[in-house]
Structures are given as structure tokens and as C-alpha cells.
Design a protein around this nucleic acid. Sequence first.
DNA 1: GCACTAGGTTGATGACTGTCAAACTTTGAC
DNA 2: GTCAAAGTTTGACAGTCATCAACCTAGTGC
Lengths: 110, 110
Amino acid sequence: MPQITDDRITDHPDVEDVTLQGVLEALVDPVRRSIVRQLAEAGRDIRCGMFDISVTRSTGTHHFKVLRHAGIIRQYYEGTSRMNALRRDDLESVFPGLIGAILAAPDVVH
Amino acid sequence: MPQITDDRITDHPDVEDVTLQGVLEALVDPVRRSIVRQLAEAGRDIRCGMFDISVTRSTGTHHFKVLRHAGIIRQYYEGTSRMNALRRDDLESVFPGLIGAILAAPDVVH
DNA sequence: GCACTAGGTTGATGACTGTCAAACTTTGAC
DNA sequence: GTCAAAGTTTGACAGTCATCAACCTAGTGC
């Protein structure tokens, strides 16, 4: 039985601390935008290793951290796997329509 | 009678060449976002010198160029003044809701 | 305990970017 | 023609960021 915890990752910002500057800084990177897109299209949480990204693990870790600090994703452990959840409701409450518009926009990665 | 021309500035991208990457790169800078916000709130074209921005003229020129190349503003001359127009319809046609969501978002620019 | 899996941390590096001062250009007015 | 007004262009510089290799950590299963 895998151990599911959320107390090992403690640096999620509260909703009121999510800023437009931080969100835009996070989403300006195509790799991070791809991560968000994959999460949205899957409609479920995805562990770090399952994403289709073309960078090394350490770079991936960096991107997940930026997304987490921006308040875009929430992370928690499930055994040795780190799961990623899109904070869609939180984002929608602070920036109505923003994430939807970005996800709906035509976007070419790489 | 001031001379109004639009053929002195020839590097405006066509609508189909406006990319999400370019728009986000442009809007991630708070000075540029402030420019867009001032244009939207004014509801009319504004010349470069009339913007309330806290950088030198040469830096301002750089920011206007980034916005122009991203397809966010259109520039034309009116005498010695360079006028700036928000390409709102173009942006709306390519990225529906995006500019509106960003303009509606709470944003703090020092 | 031991090996395996999943991922994070730590520098280091190269590229990009926002900023400015100084010199240049174009237009309009006298 | 001369001068001022409004911006642009050209380096230069400092700070930030995406990237990687190498090493470290925590949980799982035997």
C-alpha cells in the first residue's frame, strides 16, 4: 500500500498569494506550458515521470518547482512518485478565463 | 498639418504570424503590461511620450518594439510623434479571451 | 539489510534580456 | 536655414534563467 502524503511538500502558495506576474513567468516557458496542457487534457493527476517533456530529470524538477511556486500546480507524494494536480479552480477564482484562454490558444511546442 | 504615415514602420506581423509564445514573452514584462493596460483603459491611441512608464526613452523604445513584434500594438507616425494602437481585434481573433482575461486580472505594478 | 525506483539538489555554464548613456534622425515651426 | 521636439540606434553591462551532469535522498519490495 503506497503511502500518500502532502506534508512533504510545503511550499504551495495560498490562493491570495498567486500573482499574475508569477503565473505569466511560469507560462512563458514552452516546456512548462506543455506540462500544464498535458495535465488539462488528461483531466487527472499525473506523476512527474509520465510527462512527455524533452529535458532531463533535473531540468524537469526545476520546471515543476516553478509551476508549483506560481500556484499553477499542486504536488503530493504517492509512494516514491510525485503527483501533479492542476489548481484550476484556484486559478479560475483569481484570474477568471485566463487558463482557459491559454489552453484554448493555438500553441506550437518546440 | 501633421503628416500621418504608416509606411515608415514596416515590421508589424500579420495576424496569422502572431504566436502565443511571442504574446506571452511580451506580456511577462510589467512595464510592457502597463503599456497595454494604459492603452486599453484609454480606449484611444497614445503617443510614446505620453505613457506613464518609469524607464528611459531608449528602454521605452525597446519595449514598444517588443510589443509591436509580438503583434500586440500597431504603430504609426503622426508628425514627430509615434502613435500606439492596441491590436485588440486581431488578438481576439487569434486568442479569444486572452487579452480580456489579462486586463481583468488583478495586477500590481510598482 | 539490500537493491531498485523515482525524483531532488547542487553547482556550473551559456544565452537571453532589461536597463542606461551617448550619439543620430526625422519632422515641424520660426 | 536653423533650432527644438520626439524617438531611435548603438554598444555595454548586470542580472536572470533554462539547461545539464553528477551526486544525494526517500520509499518499495525482496
